[in-house]
Simulated scan of single mutants.
Amino acid sequence: MTTILQSTRAFETWMRAQLGGDLVEADLDKKYKKMKSGAFVFLRATYWRWAETIFDICPDLANAPQVLAIGDTHLENFGTWRDEEGRLVWGANDFDDAAVMPYALDLVRLATSAILARNSSSPTSRAIAEAILGGYRRGLKAPAPVILERDYKWLRNDVLLSNGERKAFWDKYRDLPLPAKPVPTPYLEALRRSLPDGGLSFIAKPRTAGTGSLGRPRFVTNVEWRGGPVVREVKALAQSVWSLRHNPSDTVIRTAVIASGRARSPDPHYQVTDNLLIRRLSPNSRKIEVEGDAQILLSPAMLDLMGFEIANSHADDASRIPVILADLDKREADWLRNSAKAAAAAIGMEQTEFARNG
Score class of each variant (00 low, 15 high):
304 D>E: 15
213 S>D: 01
228 G>T: 07
294 A>E: 14
182 P>F: 00
297 L>C: 02
228 G>K: 09
236 A>C: 06
29 D>P: 03
122 S>I: 06
74 H>V: 05
67 V>H: 05
48 W>Y: 15
243 S>K: 10
77 N>Y: 09
142 A>L: 15
208 T>C: 10
141 K>V: 11
153 K>Y: 13
32 Y>R: 15
53 T>H: 10
44 R>V: 03
280 R>Y: 04
207 R>E: 07
308 F>D: 05
235 K>W: 01
118 R>H: 02
237 L>I: 00
306 M>S: 07
275 N>T: 11
227 G>E: 00
20 G>N: 08
82 R>E: 09
146 V>E: 08
5 L>A: 12
102 P>G: 00
193 R>F: 09
175 D>W: 06
139 G>S: 02
55 F>R: 06
222 N>D: 14
15 M>F: 09
160 L>E: 11
158 D>A: 15
171 D>Y: 06
266 P>D: 11
282 S>E: 06
54 I>G: 05
51 A>P: 03
140 L>F: 09
335 W>N: 08
101 M>V: 07
217 P>T: 02
36 K>Q: 14
155 L>S: 09
247 N>L: 12
306 M>R: 07
202 F>V: 06
146 V>C: 08
128 I>R: 03
88 L>Q: 05
214 L>V: 00
1 M>C: 08
199 G>L: 02
181 K>F: 10
282 S>A: 12
152 Y>V: 13
60 D>Y: 14
192 R>E: 09
164 G>I: 00
142 A>M: 14
170 W>P: 10
338 N>K: 13
219 F>P: 14
356 R>E: 13
60 D>M: 12
63 N>H: 14
97 D>F: 01
162 S>R: 03
197 D>S: 10
22 D>S: 14
218 R>Y: 05
269 H>N: 14
24 V>R: 15
68 L>P: 09
105 L>V: 14
127 A>L: 09
253 I>H: 05
113 S>K: 01
257 V>M: 11
280 R>V: 04
157 N>Y: 08
276 L>N: 05
75 L>K: 05
276 L>H: 05
148 L>H: 04
189 E>S: 08
225 W>G: 03
71 G>H: 03
4 I>V: 14
61 L>G: 09
58 C>Y: 01
327 D>Y: 13
67 V>A: 11
